[in-house]
Design a protein around this nucleic acid. Structure first.
Lengths: 103, 103
DNA sequence: ATATCAATATCGAAATACGATATTGATATA
DNA sequence: TATATCAATATCGTATTTCGATATTGATAT
């Protein structure tokens, strides 16, 4: 119950993290999901993949299929536009969090 | 377009801020909306009011109608449970933002 | 051939978000 | 007494998002 509430709060944040990680190195769905889980966040593949598609559709990510050990992975990398959005999001996110610690 | 993307990213965050402000003092929809706007965030009343209802339904907020200058306002205050969720959210939010600034 | 396996894609149902419109209820005006 | 006004809240219909479950892909191993 509370867990569901927190997921709701942070789903947007997870989207920012997709951009953040895709800015550091190419990422793919399965692994991103695993790493989220390691940090205590779970997100259904039925939610995650459409998010990737949407971010690519908006031109923030670009994908490239690569075969690794006989498995096809779709690697996403950030675009110039994605980087601009990420930087803006980073600034806003910091402001919002800082405010949570005022008083 | 980018603006819509950023709103999507931050809607969950706005929900945390509702708890945060309701922890400081009783808040009501119209004024919360105005203050968000002052800070550059816009949220439709068709979105905002159901969020208040939902947070109250989950027992994180409690409301009380008060007549001020002949206008009825519904003031929301945080509950004990809401405070617990807020504290957890605050911690998680900080971790997530800090990570955005690593590297 | 076909079974297996990591990975991605998509489905239908439920929930959420949106902008627009309706409702509320107290006061002011006629 | 009616009714106009106004801030504030509520709700409506449509579109979009989220979810868990199921299907598909495609290369390799059996």
């Amino acid at each position: 119950m509370v867990k569901q509430t927190l997921r709701d709060f942070f789903l947007g944040f997870i989207k920012i993290h997709i951009l953040y990680h895709a800015a550091k190195e190419p990422i793919y769905g399965q692994k991103f999901s695993d790493e989220l889980k390691r940090h205590g966040y779970e997100i259904s593949f039925g939610t995650l993949y459409p998010i990737f598609h949407k971010l690519e559709g908006k031109g923030l990510l670009i994908s490239k299929i690569k075969n690794v050990n006989g498995k096809n992975r779709k690697y996403y990398t950030i675009t110039k536009k994605g980087n601009d959005v990420l930087n803006e999001a980073r600034i806003q996110a910091k402001e919002l969090v800082d405010e949570l610690f005022e008083n």
